[in-house]
Design a protein around this nucleic acid. Structure first.
Lengths: 130, 130, 130, 130
DNA sequence: GTGGTCTAGACCACC
DNA sequence: GTGGTCTAGACCACG
């Protein structure tokens, strides 16, 4: 489901968190759907359960997911966007970094915008009807 | 010149690297201009010289900067963009991450594109009005 | 495993990098094989861990080696040669230097070529008899 | 006459030494010919006289050049190749380094040998009649 | 003066 | 356990 690169510099647990979020946006995971248990997920992806655990905890902290004791972990039914200043800055920094690196790869303004446009559309997948 | 957040999870030397690149794109640092010596920069930012050194070396590896023996470190006169596959993927992943987080903040497609557009123009320095 | 000459003018970390590359070409280190951990290697060679670290990082930058989070550093499974112009020039300069010095030792053209031929075969490890 | 790259990692004085040796082998500098004085050479190449001085001293140490007090510095009339073990090892190490890097650029044995052959012939220039 | 290397020792995140 | 970062302080080669 989620492809992990163990050699990447981004921690595995972060890759899981990002992967789950991406899958939800793409409609591959539906609100209310049950995620595999920590142990199953760990076996499935041949990862250390502690790593998966850490990812689930962060997903819960971000309210992307809720865990019901004894039943499992589920994609949140209704995700309420949080827009605090910290988050806003974080996102801004990410994009800034991307833009800087893009410029240094020789992209110009228009090329960057097209690049991002394509990515956004790819990400929206099938689940948004606008 | 460059503001460092010592509490950030991104390493200090990376913040320096990013900061220099950003300053160049914004026109705050001109090609050919001399950067403060490793020691001076370290004093200026109250960092250890080794940390600054590491940043300068990475900048040189990326050809953003050249060091002239015995004289110091200078912004490259002409930077030739190199776009290998790895770099391309890196940039893509950065933007993907940004887009995902933006969606989770409640942004829709158009809002994201505008957000990025503004950032790009801010980064371009003087070319704001095209 | 790798012999270091602390009196040499080539930095220790470079000697490690070269030593690892040589060991791989000679078949002494197999793709996928684990290198000693930074600390172990440092103890083994009575060096400071930072020095070994620097060598490992350069090897990773050159994709000779991959590091797997929490597990260690491994010889790359498949090394894809990258031959950018800079690298090409570097190699050319090395050989030029070697040739000049060889001439100054009284070698003629044929002697140099034989000398290099022997070295290449020595380096190739098992393919000595082709 | 000799082109210096001030950004190179090889010291400038070494580049001068190598350059002079190369020029001699190529026949651009004849035995007995006078080299520009340290000060002239420094002006000519816009270098620090100390740097040129250091280069000349090393050339003299290697007996490539002789300086006659009050007259100047001249290319040695008869260069007697010295082949001590140290020099031999040095040259061997240079070639080994070159071969390793060539392999890592994807060259095979034959390609390396051809590469070196071409370089040798280029270096021999016009002054050797074999 | 410049950058480059090395040691010592500490702390941290990740698996 | 692993690698990664940072500080402090020292020494060196180069120009």
């Amino acid at each position: 489901m989620i492809d992990i690169d163990v050699t990447s510099s981004t921690p595995i647990y972060t890759q899981i968190v990002d992967g789950v979020k991406e899958a939800i946006l793409k409609g591959l995971l539906e609100p209310g759907e049950k995620l595999p248990s920590v142990r199953d997920m760990a076996k499935l992806m041949t990862l250390n359960p502690n790593t998966v655990q850490k990812a689930y905890q962060q997903l819960e902290r971000e309210k992307v997911v809720v865990t019901v004791r004894g039943r499992g972990t589920f994609i949140s039914e209704e995700y309420k966007p949080r827009k605090d200043e910290d988050k806003m800055n974080e996102v801004k920094e990410i994009f800034k970094k991307g833009i800087i690196e893009a410029f240094y790869m020789g992209f110009d303004k228009q090329k960057i915008l097209n690049f991002v446009k394509n990515l956004v559309e790819e990400m929206e997948g099938l689940n948004k009807n606008d």
